[in-house]
Structure formats: C-alpha cells, structure tokens
Design a binder for these strands. Structure first.
Lengths: 157, 157
DNA sequence: TATTGTTATACTCTATAACTATA
DNA sequence: TATAGTTATAGAGTATAACAATA
C-alpha cells in the first residue's frame, strides 16, 4: 500500500507525519449518508398511508412534468440505471398509476404517462411532500435552503 | 383532502390561488437523494476492489474509534435500527473483520472490537475514502465544506 | 454499431415482529 | 417493565449481464 501524497482538507489539525485522514465526522460522505437516512425515514413515516416511496413519487412527478417521456429520459433525470428504472416503473404500472405507450418517432422507445389514478396519487403525494419538506426546511433560513440545494446540485450534476 | 394552510418557502413565484408546491427541483429532499445516489455510486466504484460498502466502512471506523462499543451504541451513532445493525455486523464478522465479546458490566450487552484483519481493512478503506472524499470535496471551497457538513448535521442530528 | 427496453439474478439496506436473556 | 441481542421475514433500491428489437 503506497502512502498517499496529498491529503485534502484535513479539517482537524495534523501532527507532522500523521497519515490518518482524521475523524469520521469530517467526512462529507458520512454526513450525506446520515442526512439521507434521516430524510428517508421521515419520508417513510409521512408516506405510510400513501404507500409510496421517494423514488416512486419522484417518478410520478417527473412523468407528470414530462408527458411521453421515455424510460431512458427518466433514468437520466433520476440518475438511475435502466434496469433500476424498469423495476420502479413496473411497480407503478402494476398499481395502475402509469401506462406504457409506443413512441411514434422511435420504435425502440416507449412513452410513459400517468393515469387518472396516478395523477390523483401524485396530488396526494404533493400534499405529503409539502409536510415532509416543512420538516426538512424548518432547520434552515430561506437563503440557506437555496445554498444547500445549490451545493447538493454540484454533487449530483 | 384539505387544502394546506401554509406553503413554506416557495422559491418559485406563485400565482394567486396556486396550490401547487412548485417544481421538483426546489424540493430539498429530491436533491439529498440525488446527491446521496451520486456519492453512493462513486463510493462503490472506488471500493470495488476492497468489496466494502459505505455502511461497512463506517462501522469499522466507529468500532475502531470506540473499542468495546455495544451494538446499540453503534446503532445510535449510525442512526440505524437494531436489526439493521445486526445484519451489517454479521457480514463483517463472517469476513473476520470484527469479533463479538461479552460486556463485563452488563450481561445483556456485547462488546465489538476489530480484529487485526479488520484494522488492516480499515486502513485500506481510509486510503480509498481519501480518494473518494477528494472527488466529493473538489466541488467546494474549504469554507463551503464546513458549511455543507454543518447543514447536513442539522438534518440528521 | 449503438440505443432502448426487457428479463434474470444477486446483494445491500431497511424495517417490523416476535422471541430470549438480562437489568 | 425496559433494554440488548437475535432471528425470520419482506420490500425496495441498486447493479450486472445477456438478449431482442430498432436506429
């Protein structure tokens, strides 16, 4: 194992010759995971009646915003694999929330659209999302929310 | 379905009487999930040789920092369920990275400690984490990293 | 050749419920 | 009663690989 040449942003003071990368609390990835976990749990509680997951709501929302979107288009926006996208689409289709169609311009592609039931589910979901976001955003000032979104975007864009 | 009374932080201009909560891109939770996904994927690539997940590394790290820690102590620090913690511990034990012992002060509790193999795995993991964090933190100035961690902490604490 | 959708497969994370042992 | 660990179970997300149809 070769010794790393560069140690980036050691937010804790380092003793000369110290090759430790510091405390786990200074690891950004650690906090992203914890924050995601906390958000996930609160979301699940908020949505226990609706029985919709974060992913499923996001997909419904995006399909509603982009009628006739193809699965690959969805996959790109969600930063997901094709196979992963399929799994989620299948579940939503089974519950009658969306329908697959055939693209007129490209025989390989399919179109995705919400059913009336899907639109209704999305409307309920948006009410719950609002509550969920209130829980989340209550920790921040308006400016901070913008900053947080901007910083997170730098990671996933 | 009752109409929500309060609409918190609508970062897009709202038409009078508009009950829509806005664009999905203004939802903090959406960005947390995307950022987590991106981080997760990069982590997985970085750790493909070591065959360790984020959770597993975090557990190794925390056990190393807190010798004789009990599973519930670990669960608290990781914001995890007892059963979820068990599953992860079991995998790490099977690979010989940590050992369970008996607490001398409380018969119900067990102690967790790394084996030499576990310490070696952690050392390798920390090198990879460094690379991973470099990828992550390269998007930010040092001050921004601190801010991001502080804001994420408000969510999971 | 590349893209899109599909299927099969497998692993991790997550949570709930019920059980045992100990405090 | 409450806490700690355990086991069984189940669902969701993630990814890889291989295949068919189309561009």
């Amino acid at each position: 194992m070769t010794r790393p040449k560069e140690i980036l942003v050691p937010t804790t003071p380092h003793v000369e010759g110290d090759e430790d990368i510091g405390e786990i609390n200074n690891i950004v990835g650690f906090h992203i995971r914890l924050a995601h976990g906390a958000t996930y749990r609160h979301f699940t509680e908020t949505f226990s009646d609706l029985e919709l997951t974060q992913k499923q709501v996001s997909v419904l929302w995006l399909v509603d915003d982009h009628p006739d979107i193809a699965q690959t288009g969805l996959a790109k926006r969600m930063r997901m694999d094709r196979a992963t996208t399929m799994a989620i689409i299948n579940r939503l289709q089974k519950r009658g929330f969306l329908v697959r169609g055939k693209s007129k311009t490209d025989g390989r592609k399919q179109t995705l659209n919400l059913t009336d039931e899907g639109r209704q589910a999305l409307a309920s979901a948006k009410v719950a999302i609002q509550e969920h976001e209130k829980w989340l955003q209550s920790r921040f000032k308006k400016k901070e929310v913008e900053m947080l979104i901007e910083m997170l975007s730098r990671i996933h864009e």
